[in-house]
């Protein structure tokens, strides 16, 4: 398993590529100029190429063509990077009407999940649902508990290839569930509903730790849960 989803890794590799190019240009430039244009012994004051005298504004040193080059070229790169970062937004923010909804309620300092049966008549009891089925009667969402370093924490099990919509809110302060393996997170806010959409793939079968990633007080760091994707 690897932290971060496919979209993240696709963009991350692209960014690394361009970062490396920029960094190589800057480093080569820096080392070349700082070595080639050093004072003869590197120590003595050296001759002032532009004759600095205190209180005298020195000769101008500019070149419009060069300055425009390193305004326009980075700008084009930025436009390109923005363009490729734009695509995934659509996927992340558009609601899938067939998504199965899962309720996430954050509290100081524990997570409450709710499988929310699609059809209220299927609900075994009123209120929180610990299990939900799809039309074929297969389990698509199940809640139980798991031991994390000696503490009992909630375990959320979801079916792979099932489109999910997390409907999130908080009972007290701001929290944020971090789905480590999928590389997504979103704050839960009191008095407000936030949403996350994701469809775990078959490659993502397995359990991963869910941590709180918006500081929420004393036991922030142990406010964990486990999310398991099953085939």
């Amino acid at each position: 398993m690897e932290a971060g989803g496919d979209v993240f890794h696709m963009l991350f590799d692209e960014w690394n590529f361009w970062s490396a190019i920029v960094m190589i240009i800057v480093s080569v430039w820096l080392f070349h100029h700082s070595l080639k244009y050093r004072a003869k012994d590197g120590k003595s004051m050296g001759e002032s190429c532009d004759e600095f005298i205190p209180g005298v504004f020195p000769k101008e040193n500019d070149n419009l063509k060069m300055e425009l080059t390193w305004t326009i070229v980075p700008f084009i790169l930025i436009v390109y990077l923005t363009y490729i970062a734009w695509g995934p937004l659509d996927e992340m923010w558009s609601a899938d009407p067939d998504a199965h909804e899962i309720g996430v309620t954050a509290n100081q300092w524990f997570w409450d999940f709710d499988c929310m049966a699609d059809d209220p008549e299927d609900a075994e009891t009123i209120g929180q649902q610990n299990v939900a089925y799809n039309d074929d009667g297969e389990v698509i969402c199940e809640i139980s508990t798991i031991d994390v370093e000696g503490e009992t924490k909630p375990l959320l099990r979801v079916k792979a290839e099932q489109s999910l919509a997390f409907i999130m809110t908080s009972n007290d302060v701001t929290h944020a569930p971090f789905f480590l393996d999928w590389g997504i997170k979103e704050d839960t806010q009191p008095g407000m509903e936030t949403r996350l959409y994701y469809t775990p793939s078959v490659d993502e079968v397995g359990s991963s730790l869910l941590m709180c990633t918006e500081y929420c007080g004393k036991q922030h760091s142990t406010m964990t849960a486990v999310v398991e994707v099953f085939a």
Binding site: A3, G4, G5, V7, F8, L11, F12, W15, S19, V22, M23, L81, T82, A85, P88, L89, M92, A176, F178, G183, I184, K185, E186, T213, E214
Partner: peptide
């Protein structure tokens, strides 16, 4: 350069608060 990773929202969702 590392600051340029955050404005790409899809990357920020993973990197935020890490």
């Amino acid at each position: 350069i590392s600051g340029m990773y955050f404005p790409a929202v899809a990357m920020d969702l993973h990197l935020h608060e890490t």
